[in-house]
Amino acid sequence: MAHAVETGVKHEDHESIKIAGFWIFLVQDVLLFATLFATYVVLRNHYAGGPTPKELFDVPGFVAETFILLTSSFTSGLAALQLNKKSVGGLITWLVITGVLGLAFLGFEINEFTNMVQEGATISTSAFLSAFFTLVGTHGAHVTLGLGWMLGLIIQLARRGITPVTSRKVSVLSLYWHFLDAVWIFIFTVVYLIGVM
């Protein structure tokens, strides 16, 4: 590679600029969720004669979701740490563990949603349920997206090993995954805990 190549930026900065942009993207996503939370808060007792959160929410279910996601956030961090050891094998292993936990989380969530729908509590039942399904579902959609991304990244890591590009991608993905857990903390608190109070 030529050494004296000049870009607008120093070349090492290339990847760190992408991480900086990703932080801003996350802030943008925080505001997106804030708006969904605001809607939920405003509509949360508009039951319209439909079921209330106390009747609907299943404590063991959402507690399990919470701990699974928290653990996967932890394991995604451990995956990123493998970058420093330059161990592709370890990295992929931890990513796979994270992905499996993510899938388990999604499984619980889908199970929860289907149960509700079978009990007749659908998105069309009341404003409260519209807000509930949309807020929690948007988070679930983010998790799903993250899983697809993880799969792509695992393939790239297997093919190319740890390079500046792939390690930037790992860092960004783990940031994203931590962020999803951070959002979940508030869903856990504002939706579920306050709901069953």
Binding site: H46, A48, G50, I123, T125
Partner: peptide, 12 residues
């Protein structure tokens, strides 16, 4: 069929 902003089912 959600009811965020409708006149019925508690929408606002």
């Amino acid at each position: 069929g959600a009811h965020f902003f409708t006149m019925t089912h508690g929408g606002d």
